[in-house]
Design a protein around this nucleic acid. Structure first.
Lengths: 193, 193
DNA sequence: AGCATATTCGGACTGATAGTCCGCATTCGT
DNA sequence: ACGAATGCGGACTATCAGTCCGAATATGCT
């Protein structure tokens, strides 16, 4: 009975949403994460400040949206994509495939990561992205090892995805170094050194 | 020849320093970490705002000073206290003893931890406390295992000491739960599950 | 096309906060 | 007791997140 279809997003609204995300992206690239004030974002996007807030709620929402955009593909791949990322492969392979992709996202978006951590503050752990990653990792650890509390192991692995730490552990000449370290860490936790 | 001894800290300065630290402590206990504005700290301490800044430089410095106060004893114990915390005990024992104390500090100061993380932002990893903990852990891991990069393992263990995560992993009926989890994690990394 | 209405826009406004500055007060060695 | 060095205080600035509401505009219907 319920009319589920709300009126589609208005064309100008969609255009502005894209403009705001693009502006945020550019400001993040230019200066550090604290260089991105919402005033500036609005100005660069050529919209009013109110627009930014109506669309994204607050600073955290804006950064979260950008991060979600970056990780949507991985999320789908994990949920129902082909193995080894998706269901079907052995735990060890799924774990490595997952961390390979997540690591790539982190390495390519360290500044965004930092900004998001700053903005989220309190509810970093109730953010839907975090919950999804954590759920996936917990599941894999629970299936693969009994040694360690799987929930804790998942938190421990994700804790290492700190924007500043990622930057610090990513030398310019080896952009995948961080990822490999995380993969090794996860294997050790899985009891498969 | 140089007169190394600067004039000792003036009596009023020392009194104010203590008052400011105590006020910060109280505000942290009362409300969350973002309830602690430096205006409020100054007001509660009964001093001017300038005094707080002259003494501690900035918000990060204030919180760092408080944290350092809490961890001074552990630092000394690690450097030259009796075994198993200090030098002399086997690596495994030193590691467990160290994490027992550090965990206790984290469990008892989770709010302060969060506030400090927020304030430090950029230079979390150049903070002297972090460097000391990291150096100690790196040393222990390097001595005890070859499997994993010791530096990375140390970062991974410390990454778990996030104020919010500590709070989330500390149930009211088991205040040492977090510590035990971290100890297990460290043992696994040491190759001694 | 023309109209009515819901939706969105924009930017002025508020409230809070980190950090600065400088004239005045206090302390301490002599 | 005295004078220089040190510290004090709080008004001031700059910046930012988030709110609000009259004006503008897209959309669906006729």
């Amino acid at each position: 009975m319920a009319m589920t279809a709300q009126r589609a997003e208005r064309a100008d609204a969609a255009r502005n949403r894209r403009a705001v995300l693009a502006a945020t992206e550019r400001l993040l690239a230019e200066g550090g994460g604290d260089h991105v004030s919402l005033d500036r974002v609005a100005a660069l996007a050529g919209v009013g400040k109110g627009t930014v807030f109506r669309r994204f709620g607050n600073r955290a929402g804006l950064l979260q949206a950008l991060l979600e955009e970056r990780s949507l593909e991985l999320r789908q791949g994990v949920a129902d994509g082909p193995a080894p990322l998706g269901p079907g492969a052995p735990v060890r392979e799924r774990l490595l495939a997952f961390l390979d992709r997540l690591g790539a996202i982190a390495e390519g978006n360290a500044v965004l990561l930092t900004a998001h951590e700053q903005a989220c503050a309190e509810d970093k752990f109730t953010d839907p992205s975090y919950l999804f990653w954590h759920g996936h990792l917990s599941g894999l650890f629970a299936e693969g090892c009994a040694d360690l509390d799987a929930e804790f192991a998942a938190h421990a692995v994700l804790a290492v995805f700190d924007g500043d730490l990622v930057r610090r552990l990513t030398p310019p000449d080896d952009p995948r170094h961080f990822t490999r370290s995380v993969q090794r860490l996860a294997l050790v936790l899985l009891g498969d050194g």
